[in-house]
Simulated scan of single mutants.
Amino acid sequence: MTLTGVGGAGKTRLALRAANLHAESAGVDGLFASLESVQDARRLPRAVVRALGLADQSTRDPLDVVIEALTEQLNRAAAWRSKPVTYVLTENDKILPPPVQEMLAARTGGDVVRIPHGHNPFGEDPVAFAALLARIAAPTSVAT
Rank of each mutant, 00 (worst) to 15 (best):
residue 54 L to C: 03
residue 41 A to T: 08
residue 61 D to V: 04
residue 38 V to Q: 01
residue 69 A to G: 04
residue 41 A to F: 05
residue 56 D to C: 09
residue 74 L to E: 13
residue 55 A to G: 06
residue 60 R to D: 05
residue 73 Q to H: 15
residue 69 A to V: 06
residue 70 L to Y: 08
residue 33 A to Q: 01
residue 46 R to T: 03
residue 50 R to E: 13
residue 49 V to P: 01
residue 56 D to Q: 12
residue 39 Q to T: 14
residue 69 A to N: 07
residue 46 R to S: 07
residue 52 L to M: 11
residue 76 R to D: 14
residue 55 A to I: 05
residue 39 Q to P: 00
residue 74 L to R: 15
residue 36 E to F: 15
residue 49 V to H: 04
residue 50 R to N: 11
residue 70 L to H: 06
residue 33 A to E: 01
residue 49 V to M: 05
residue 47 A to I: 00
residue 35 L to P: 07
residue 35 L to C: 08
residue 63 L to Q: 14
residue 44 L to N: 05
residue 41 A to E: 05
residue 65 V to N: 02
residue 65 V to Y: 02
residue 62 P to Q: 08
residue 64 D to N: 12
residue 69 A to R: 10
residue 35 L to D: 05
residue 45 P to V: 12
residue 42 R to N: 10
residue 37 S to G: 03
residue 34 S to E: 15
residue 67 I to N: 09
residue 64 D to H: 13
residue 61 D to E: 12
residue 65 V to I: 07
residue 43 R to I: 01
residue 69 A to H: 11
residue 71 T to Y: 09
residue 36 E to I: 14
residue 43 R to S: 12
residue 53 G to R: 09
residue 41 A to K: 02
residue 59 T to N: 08
residue 58 S to K: 10
residue 75 N to Y: 09
residue 73 Q to K: 15
residue 63 L to Y: 09
residue 65 V to R: 03
residue 42 R to Q: 11
residue 68 E to R: 08
residue 66 V to S: 00
residue 43 R to D: 15
residue 69 A to Q: 07
residue 61 D to C: 02
residue 33 A to L: 01
residue 38 V to H: 05
residue 46 R to D: 04
residue 53 G to W: 10
residue 57 Q to G: 09
residue 34 S to H: 13
residue 35 L to Y: 11
residue 39 Q to A: 13
residue 60 R to V: 06
residue 65 V to K: 02
residue 62 P to L: 07
residue 56 D to W: 10
residue 59 T to S: 06
residue 37 S to H: 13
residue 56 D to E: 13
residue 65 V to L: 04
residue 58 S to I: 02
residue 37 S to C: 03
